[in-house]
């Protein structure tokens, strides 16, 4: 078991990427959609995403939206499965699928769709705030 020998503290550089005009607009929109603070979302991204992926986030978001993310599954679209797990990889695929499965079970049990989706978003929020 080894660790990186020349580990640099990249926090300030990653932060500078995230406060660029387009990045900032996108992150504010995502944070408001997920119900987390902008600072929390930035912290999560800095910890989990490398520099080049951070640079590419607005382009990936646009590509995911243009590709019609989750067009065939309205519940997944409401939750933002493709956007948050493939477009902007905030949540691992498997974890996102588990959250989606739980939501669908709730809906099948009679819970209204907006309520179930809100519960799903709360689970996504939990992962980010953990």
């Amino acid at each position: 078991m080894t660790e990186w020998l020349y580990e640099q503290d990249l926090v300030s550089q990653k932060y500078r990427i995230l406060i660029a005009h387009e990045h900032d607009q996108l992150i504010r929109a995502l944070a408001s959609d997920l119900g987390v603070s902008v600072q929390e979302l930035r912290r999560y991204m800095i910890e989990h995403i490398d520099m080049i992926l951070l640079e590419n986030i607005p382009a990936r978001y646009k590509a995911a939206v243009a590709a019609g993310a989750d067009a065939d599954d309205p519940v997944a679209r409401e939750l933002g499965r493709d956007i948050f797990s493939r477009g902007i990889p905030l949540i691992p695929n498997q974890q996102m699928e588990e959250i989606l499965k739980k939501i669908k079970e709730r809906i099948e049990a009679g819970s209204p769709v907006p309520e179930a989706v809100a519960a799903g978003k709360a689970m996504v929020r939990e992962v980010i705030l953990r």
């Binding site: 005009h21 387009e22 490398d50 080049i52 992926l53 640079e55 590419n56 607005p58 382009a59």
Partner: peptide, 18 residues
Amino acid sequence: AEIQIQTPSIMNIEACCH
């Protein structure tokens, strides 16, 4: 007043490495 440049290498390097 405001400018942001999105260069092609951002996307291509990301795809290359990931």
